[in-house]
Simulated scan of single mutants.
Amino acid sequence: MSSPQGATEERPPSRASLVSPASLTPEQRAWTATLRTLAARRLRPLAEAAEPGRVNRPLVAALGEHGLLARVFPADGVVRAVDLCLLREALGQECTEAETALALQGLGAHPIAASGTEAQRARWLPEVVAGRAVAAFALSEPEAGSDAAALRLRAEPAGPSEPPGWTLHGEKQWISNAPEADFYTVFARTRPDAGAHGVTAFLVPADRPGLGGRPLDLIAPHPVGLLTFDGVPVGPDDVLGEVDGGFGVALRTLDLFRPSVGAFAVGMSRAALRAALAHAAERHAFGGPLKDLQAVSHQLADMATRTEAAALLVHAAATAYDAGEPGVAGRSAMAKLYATETAQYVIDAALQIHGARGLEQGHLLEHLYREVRATRIYEGATEVQRTIIARELYR
């Protein structure tokens, strides 16, 4: 299958097309340029060769081979939001499949890095960093998506004649990398009717008895599926963090990853803007290039301005996270909200400038149009982000 982002794969990406926030260091700017070249030349061919909607293990292995997953989970154990955002923005410009594969490894394994035991980290993190083990973050359910405190997957205490622990009963839905992942970070209810205070996070290897699932088909062909838990056994050694403390594990993970969803959105915005600029300069109508029409040129100006504003907001949220500043939840929500809404606008405007050719299957903008829609839903929908922001204003 040909990649819609393959039009420029024979030449390295132009540094001039990456308008980074002014606060980035020269080293960071150079690193992002290198990442884009790597994504276009090495990662995109692996994405092109894969079956849509399935876990692309060669691509995940390449992320490990080139040290990108080690940048997400560095040897000192400190996951840095700025690095994660720079990675996701750069990859998002050149190969959305590589960006998504990296993000899902990070999302699924971060609870282990942040809240796992020494044994859990030693068992799984080296495999994740090397690209040998595929991770998944299993939070959403058929009746509990953005309202994570309403989840219903039950962790029932083991019987008196059984080993200490629980058995999991219920379903998870819209879980990225399911049902093909090697392990899952699973959030289950250990105290009925306790809301957010009765949820525990468990590390569940894929070979546990009673764990099943099937893939789901979405408008963008990502590996997403449904998981079924029919008495899946978990014990004290599988708990991530503390019993009944799983909601905090989830929130800390989302506070880190929400700005980086915004970074992915910024990357897609930049790719769409770059395509729109090129098309408006080359396409002639009404006696001249499209870029000379005020309706088009003003729209390009708005697209560029909003993209740059989104990038600055994402970078500010990531910097605040790394510095341990207060109000991270609100900043993260603002970054995700504004950047994903901006990306939807920019990609739609770029497609409008292209006209019918942008609708052709396999075109970059057709691809981005399908990719961007989910960013306004996963890891907290736009409406949830506004609720978080408003709540933080009054905190």
Rank of each mutant, 00 (worst) to 15 (best):
residue 141 E to A: 13
residue 142 P to L: 13
residue 142 P to T: 09
residue 143 E to M: 11
residue 144 A to S: 06
residue 144 A to H: 06
residue 145 G to M: 15
residue 145 G to E: 11
residue 145 G to S: 12
residue 145 G to A: 12
residue 146 S to V: 14
residue 148 A to I: 12
residue 148 A to H: 11
residue 149 A to P: 08
residue 149 A to R: 14
residue 150 A to D: 13
residue 154 R to K: 13
residue 155 A to N: 05
residue 157 P to K: 03
residue 158 A to L: 09
residue 158 A to D: 12
residue 159 G to T: 03
residue 159 G to F: 02
residue 160 P to Y: 03
residue 160 P to F: 04
residue 161 S to T: 11
residue 162 E to Y: 02
residue 162 E to H: 06
residue 162 E to M: 05
residue 162 E to T: 07
residue 163 P to Q: 05
residue 166 W to E: 05
residue 166 W to K: 04
residue 169 H to R: 14
residue 170 G to V: 02
residue 171 E to W: 10
residue 171 E to D: 11
residue 174 W to R: 09
residue 174 W to V: 08
residue 175 I to C: 05
residue 177 N to Q: 09
residue 178 A to Y: 02
residue 178 A to P: 00
residue 178 A to I: 02
residue 178 A to N: 03
residue 180 E to P: 02
residue 183 F to H: 02
residue 183 F to A: 03
residue 183 F to N: 00
residue 183 F to D: 02
residue 184 Y to N: 03
residue 185 T to H: 01
residue 186 V to E: 00
residue 186 V to Q: 02
residue 187 F to I: 03
residue 189 R to K: 10
residue 191 R to I: 06
residue 191 R to L: 10
residue 191 R to K: 15
residue 192 P to M: 08
residue 193 D to P: 12
residue 194 A to W: 04
residue 194 A to K: 12
residue 195 G to E: 08
residue 195 G to L: 09
residue 196 A to S: 11
residue 197 H to W: 13
residue 197 H to E: 15
residue 197 H to L: 15
residue 197 H to K: 15
residue 200 T to R: 15
residue 200 T to I: 15
residue 200 T to P: 15
residue 200 T to G: 14
residue 201 A to N: 14
residue 202 F to E: 01
residue 203 L to D: 03
residue 203 L to C: 11
residue 204 V to M: 06
residue 204 V to Y: 04
residue 204 V to R: 06
residue 204 V to H: 06
residue 204 V to P: 08
residue 205 P to Q: 15
residue 207 D to V: 14
residue 207 D to R: 14
residue 207 D to F: 13
residue 207 D to A: 14
residue 208 R to Y: 07
residue 209 P to L: 15
residue 209 P to Y: 09
residue 209 P to F: 09
residue 209 P to T: 11
residue 211 L to A: 08
residue 211 L to G: 08
residue 213 G to N: 07
residue 217 D to G: 06
residue 220 A to W: 02
residue 222 H to I: 10
residue 222 H to K: 07
residue 222 H to E: 10
residue 223 P to D: 05
residue 223 P to G: 09
residue 224 V to S: 03
residue 225 G to C: 13
residue 227 L to A: 07
residue 227 L to K: 08
residue 228 T to K: 14
residue 228 T to R: 15
residue 228 T to A: 12
residue 229 F to M: 07
residue 229 F to I: 09
residue 229 F to A: 05
residue 230 D to G: 15
residue 230 D to K: 12
residue 230 D to V: 13
residue 230 D to Q: 13
residue 231 G to C: 10
residue 231 G to W: 04
residue 232 V to F: 01
residue 232 V to D: 04
residue 232 V to E: 01
residue 232 V to Y: 00
residue 233 P to K: 05
residue 233 P to M: 03
residue 234 V to L: 01
residue 234 V to S: 00
residue 235 G to F: 01
residue 235 G to A: 04
residue 235 G to C: 03
